[in-house]
Amino acid sequence: MTLLSIRDLVVEFPTPAGVVRAVDHVSLELGFGERLGVVGESGSGKSVLARTAMGLTRKGPARISGEVVIDGRSILGLSERGRRALWGREVAMVFQDPLSALHPITPIGAQIAEAVRRDPSVKKEQAAKRAVELLEIVGIPQAARRAKSRAHELSGGMRQRVAIAMAVAGRPKLLFADEPTTALDVTVQARILDLFDELCREFGIGIVMVSHDLGVVGRHTDHVAVMYAGRIAERGPVKAVFARPSMRYTSALMAAIPSHRAERQTLPKPIPGSPPNLLAPPPGCRFAPRCAFATDRCGTEQPTLTELSGGHEYACWHPGQEAVR
């Protein structure tokens, strides 16, 4: 059984300057209790992908086609009201900046209790008690006292723990995490990522983690999908992709991860150039203008996803591990 299935998803935003296609024919799958990392630079469409998959992207400003099925239910076909019934209970999201994501005035305990009370059978007092339990689960010390605090009285790491507690309060099966550690100190990042692992292990929550950091995704997910300019560049089990990165953009991202091991101490190699303008993307491979291996074919023909080994696919005319010639 699949928990999340995205098929041929296209998300376009009409702007005065033209149509921006933020997500371009993306298909992905995730099983129950699995963790998927979606990696890409800013502007690669990974956040739009996550928000659309959850049904949060509003139909007014966006044009959406394709299909998103969460636990057997097609999200995109539902009305706002129908989606709302799933939000917080079947599927939830942890946002990037925990300070702006938490309500500035309402105490954190009440914010979590509100999410608990999405289940109408839960009484007010029970919800308050459950909120304290959730704060304990996500590792907040003195949870009962902390429940009365407001967001501005907490540290960044604690705020993100609160946001996570709020997201899992309705016992969702699927959790989207949009750059959940980007706004945090490096030392706090690792602990928050461990918390995600724990939630996945203990509660069987499937997690889609959006990140610009391939290193983070590599250590904390089972599958990875690399996005470039709205398209899937490469995807597959983390081990397979890390062992044989094939699309040249993935290879370049791998080369850009700083290594801490003494024997491999090489400087990370930045990727030259910048992502394409989505108003006028290159006709062939989107990465071709920045790729050291690009040929004429790359400039004209779009590469399609090719399977390398069990579930490991890449979209590249000249696959290989080296990022520079």
Binding site: M54, L56, R84, A85, L86, W87, G88, R89, A92, M93, F95, D97, S100, A101, L102, H103, P104, E114, A115, R118, A163, M166, G170
Partner: peptide, 10 residues
């Protein structure tokens, strides 16, 4: 953002 969060909470 906290209004988006509220919406995503249902």
């Amino acid at each position: 953002e906290f209004m988006n969060v509220a919406r995503a909470k249902g």
